[in-house]
Structures are given as structure tokens and as C-alpha cells.
Design a protein around this nucleic acid. Structure first.
Lengths: 235, 235
DNA sequence: ACCTGAACACCGTTCAAGT
DNA sequence: ACCTGAACACCGTTCAAGT
């Protein structure tokens, strides 16, 4: 026996970059971004905040690591279901739904994915990983897309996902504050139609505006985007 | 003379909510969001931080006030150019370009406009003001849109703007940090193609990916959106 | 009415020191 | 090698006190 490591490896699994990132993700998912501080994260991991700096390069690096952790699941691997690789349209359908799944699973993190500066200026959110973008461009060019058409498809696909998913995530993310007041205490005020006196059209359309059509809208807009991309394929 | 106010009104124009918001906007535009602290803002206004709390309800309220200040310019007023009110298509064209102008003028603020929770759940970024949304829905319903078609157009228009403008703003917003390192010190490394060895498609498409097509893409995608909306007008 | 001083409860980050 | 104590330079926010 060379070292004096504790033979009973139970209580504290030792620090690691992965353990830090996973715990940080849990905090953000449960309590929002502003609840994540180095000091609190340290204490949740049973350690002083300063110890974290051995594994992450400060708070910014930690946020980047969380984002990276989530985008890793978007790569094409041997585990990718076969339905995803049957033509570029199937691939884009699969990829779009994967990103949407991440946005729904981590609504508090998605704004980070959408708004943080990517590593390279031509690397656009939310597909901000070299691996994922390589997959994207390789699939399309392999299937008859010209270089310019593939790049244009990448840009259009990115805009589409941001536009649809950021709003959905923001709706799901909710109030961030755990114990927020749901209603101001006025018991006979149905939602928010009290100050709507000066906004007759809004008041009239409130039922339509309150309807959640995100599923249908995402699917039909995605179909339309794929049609549009198909039209430029031989650009 | 009833009060003892300084007769010479030169040196310090006295505090006001508007002066605070304008100075805060200047700070965020020039140095980024994280440079805006209550204490620094106070000292820039020649006052202790605690004085600001007479006019703004804390930092969150201040951020909201900045956003509100910028979205005020999107309302239809007597000053709105006539070209904007000649049919709903002209109005949507005008509105889209106004929002784009705001995003370009204040790239560091646009993520706030895009990601902060609106006052009502059906109030979507970036058109997050009751006045603006009232204009939007009134113009469309006045010109033959059904209620559901108008609401659907509002949702599609919002997604479109977020998707296109957040990326443009992020590109313009740049590094937020004033004195950031532009290059890591390696003099013969052209941009970022050193680690691109494992990404052949990206490397091949780098010229296409680096091209800035935002103007054309915004215009043509906007045209297409308006066509699509026109098709659903009698929904 | 408007601003301030002092205080409270936090931050991120550094660095020499401990084991 | 890995973690800590102490310190530095900040935060947002409150509240009683000053003028």
C-alpha cells in the first residue's frame, strides 16, 4: 500500500470536474442561475469554494462547462437511433427534436446556450459545438448540398431553433424565485385582465393569446423550414 | 422664494428615474451588463448607491426599466412615418426593422429584451409591451385577420425576430470585456483553424461559414414570413 | 423630501499555508 | 496532490439618521 487514501470510499466521492458540473446543473435546474454561486456550490459538495478552482477556471468556465455538457448529447454516435440517419431530413428532424428535448429538460440553462458567445464567431447557438456542427455539415454535403447551401441551411436551422425554443424555455423556466408570489392578494382578479382597460384588442384576443400551440407550431414550422432548405439544396 | 433649492442649476441636474435609466443604458452599451452595479452607477451619477433606491426598485427593476425604455420606440404614434401604416404588410416591415435597429444599436441589451420574463405569460419577447402588442393586433384585425390568425401571426413574428436578431446582436455585442485578448499570442495562427484538424468539413466550409449574410437573410426570411402570414389571413 | 453612513449578508478570486 | 484560512475588493439592500 503506497498511499494513505481512505480505504472506506463511502462518504465523500472526492471532487472532480464532472461532479462539480453535475451539481451545478442541478442547482440551476432547481433554483435558477442566480442561485449558483461558487461558495454555495462548494458547500453543497462538502468543500470550501476555493477547492473548486482546481477543476474549473472560475464561474464563467463553469457555466461554459454546463453548456458543453448538455450539447454533448447532440452528437452522432453509434448509439444514435437509426431513424436519425435515414437522409438529411430525418437527421434534421432528429436533431431539432433533440435540441428541443434539452431546452425542455433544462429551461433555465437554455438562455445560456442561446446567448453566450460561442468559441468561434461562425459557430452559432444553439449548435455551438464543433462536433455537432461537423456532423451537420458533413451529413448535408454528403447528400448533395453545395458548400454555400449547407452553410445557409446551418444558419437558417440555428435561427429557427433559437426563435422557437427560447420562448418555450422562458415559458417553462418560470419564476426562478422559489417562493414568489403567484397572485398579489387581490382575490377576485382573474389573472391579469385588470389593467387591460386601455387595450381592447388584447382583451378581446386574450383567449387566443393564452393558448399554447407550441407543439403544433414547432412541428409545422420545422416542416416548412425543411421544405425551404430542400428547395435550396442545389444552390 | 419658498425653498432653498440651489438657484444655480448647473453642476448636478438632480436625480430622477429617467436620468438613472439613461446612465445605466450607457454603461451597459459601453461596458456590458456585468459592469452595471448599483454602487458604480451611483458614483457615476455623483451620488451614493443607496440614493438610487428612491427611484428604482432594486437592480431587477432597473433592468426592466432599461428594456421598457427601448421598447417604447416601437409604438405607433403620430410621429410614425406614413410608409409604416399603408397596410399590415408595410406595418410589419416597419416594425421588424425598428426592432432590428434597436437590437443593432444596443446589442448588449437585446439578450435582456429576449430572455427576461414578460409581465404576462402571453406577452412574448421581443414585443413585450402592452402598447406595442395592442398596435400589432389592432392593425391586423382591422385589416381582415381573424382573431386566431392575428394571434398566430403575433407568435410567428416574435419567434422570427428572436431567432434572427439574437444571433446578430450576439455577434455585434462582442467580448463585453474591454481589454480582452484578441489573439492568444501565437502569431502565425490564422484565426482559429489550428484545432480544426479533426473537423474536415468545417475546415473546408470555413469561408462560407464566416460570411456575413445577415442583411440578405433577414430581408428574405421576413418576406417569406409575410407571405406565410398572408396565406393564413383568412384562417 | 432627498440623500447618506453604517451595517448586514453575501459575492468571486488570490495566495501562502497546511496535510 | 489536494484542500483550506485568511484576506482583498467588491456586491445588493436595509434602515435609522442627517439636512
Amino acid at each position: 500500500m503506497k498511499d494513505t487514501a481512505p480505504t472506506d470510499l463511502g462518504s465523500r466521492p472526492r471532487l472532480s470536474r464532472e461532479r462539480i458540473v453535475l451539481e451545478a446543473l442541478r442547482v440551476v435546474d432547481d433554483e435558477g442561475l442566480q442561485a449558483l454561486s461558487m461558495r454555495r456550490l462548494g458547500s453543497l459538495l462538502g468543500v470550501e469554494a476555493m477547492s473548486l478552482y482546481r477543476y474549473v477556471n472560475g464561474r464563467e468556465d463553469l457555466l461554459e462547462a454546463i453548456v458543453e455538457h448538455l450539447t454533448d448529447g447532440l452528437r452522432l454516435t453509434p448509439q444514435t437511433p437509426v431513424s436519425a440517419v435515414d437522409g438529411w431530413q430525418a437527421y434534421l428532424q432528429w436533431l431539432a427534436h433533440e435540441v428541443r428535448r434539452v431546452a425542455h429538460a433544462h429551461p433555465q440553462v437554455f438562455p445560456l446556450i442561446a446567448t453566450r458567445h460561442p468559441a468561434a464567431p461562425w459557430l452559432r447557438p444553439p449548435l455551438r459545438s464543433l462536433d455537432v456542427v461537423e456532423d451537420f455539415l458533413a451529413v448535408l454535403t454528403r447528400q448533395g448540398f453545395g458548400d454555400e447551401a449547407a452553410a445557409a441551411a446551418y444558419r437558417a436551422f440555428s435561427s429557427f431553433l433559437i426563435g422557437h425554443l427560447l420562448l418555450e424555455a422562458s415559458q417553462l423556466g418560470g419564476s426562478t424565485v422559489p417562493g414568489e408570489p403567484l397572485d398579489e392578494g387581490d382575490p377576485n382578479a382573474s389573472s391579469s385582465d385588470l389593467e387591460l382597460a386601455d387595450y381592447p384588442t388584447i382583451r378581446r384576443l386574450e383567449p387566443e393569446l393564452s393558448q399554447d400551440r407550441s407543439d403544433e407550431e414547432f412541428e409545422s414550422a420545422l416542416e416548412e423550414l425543411l421544405d425551404r432548405i430542400a428547395r435550396t439544396q442545389r444552390g
